[in-house]
């Protein structure tokens, strides 16, 4: 038994990364960025607002949170809708109470189906981030390029029709991209994407069709990861976010640098009656931190220029 000799060839084994998207960069040697508030820590709240068709598609993959049981999966279809109808409004009230402007990563289907929600988001001054068409709109290699281009355009068109504004940012479902995605997003005129989780500051990402900014929204700090996947309590989630803030703030202070803390939350997770109080407690605590300010992903991405 032996392996194809090519398996022991390493053609990209040289200085730097094994791709041309971005150069290596040590976070702690980066030139400083400044947030619009002038505060040391930008707290970026990103809410995923999603519509799961009761007929799930598995190409290229089934989205996390999608239908589970044989058709018709009332339990998951309606539990996700609960997040949109009820949990999200609890969150909007919680954000308003602390004056937080947030980024809502919304499926185009949310705008098409529930324009009132989009109006309510905009009325509170929040930002809309394009988040594909609906939860069947997953992307991965294998999705034909023309279909992916059309999916991105459909999501942007649906949101623009209702908001009157072309979204400036994109977040893929499950942060999953194909090799074409960054280029297609740049060609679609998007200023930033929020899929790559390799950093704690925005950075430039070369696509082959010009640069786009990647604003990292750390999946490890998301409620889906901590509460849904790792099965920890809402109180533990809050404690972990407070610990993360304390660490990031202490580094920012020591270096005289600005940093970001991404809070990625989901209406059908943290918007439940027994969890929303924990989120409200976290938001109140963050709002009382002298060195923190709430910023949208657009504001954070724009700080790079």
């Amino acid at each position: 038994m032996s392996l194809d000799p090519a398996y022991l060839d390493y053609p990209l084994r040289k200085r730097g990364m094994d791709h041309g998207y971005y150069p290596y960069s040590n976070l702690f040697e980066r030139p400083p960025l400044a947030w619009p508030s002038g505060k040391a820590v930008a707290v970026a709240i990103v809410v995923n607002l999603e519509w799961f068709p009761i007929l799930p598609a598995d190409k290229p993959f089934r989205a996390p949170g999608h239908m589970v049981t044989p058709y018709p999966d009332y339990r998951h279809y309606t539990a996700r809708e609960y997040g949109t109808r009820v949990g999200f409004y609890r969150m909007l009230d919680a954000f308003a109470k602390v004056g937080a402007r947030v980024s809502v990563a919304a499926n185009g289907a949310i705008a098409e189906r529930y324009p009132q929600i989009i109006a309510d988001i905009l009325a509170d001054g929040h930002e809309i981030v394009a988040h594909s068409t609906d939860m069947n709109g997953t992307i991965a290699s294998g999705l034909p390029e023309d279909e992916e281009r059309a999916l991105i355009a459909a999501a942007l068109d649906a949101l623009e029709r209702v908001t009157g504004m072309r979204p400036r940012g994109w977040m893929s479902i499950a942060r999953s991209q194909s090799f074409n995605t960054p280029r297609l997003l740049a060609e679609a005129g998007l200023a930033y994407m929020a899929d790559w989780v390799n950093d704690e500051l925005p950075y430039r990402f070369e696509t082959g069709a010009g640069a786009i900014v990647n604003v990292p929204v750390n999946h490890e700090l998301s409620d889906r990861q901590i509460v849904t996947v790792q099965q920890q309590s809402a109180d533990s989630y809050v404690e972990q976010m407070m610990d993360a803030y304390a660490l990031i703030k202490s580094e920012a202070s020591a270096l005289g640098a600005s940093r970001m803390l991404p809070l990625n939350v989901t209406p059908y997770v943290m918007g439940l009656p027994y969890r929303i109080g924990a989120l409200e407690r976290l938001l109140g605590w963050l709002a009382n931190q002298d060195d923190a300010a709430f910023h949208s992903l657009s504001e954070i991405g724009a700080a790079l220029r």
Binding site: L27, Q177, S178, V197, D199, H219, E220
Partner: peptide, 15 residues
């Protein structure tokens, strides 16, 4: 590209 898998590991070297 497994974007989350790869970039999660890359975070280790950058941060």
């Amino acid at each position: 590209p497994d974007v989350v898998g790869y970039s999660h590991r890359d975070y280790g070297n950058r941060v």
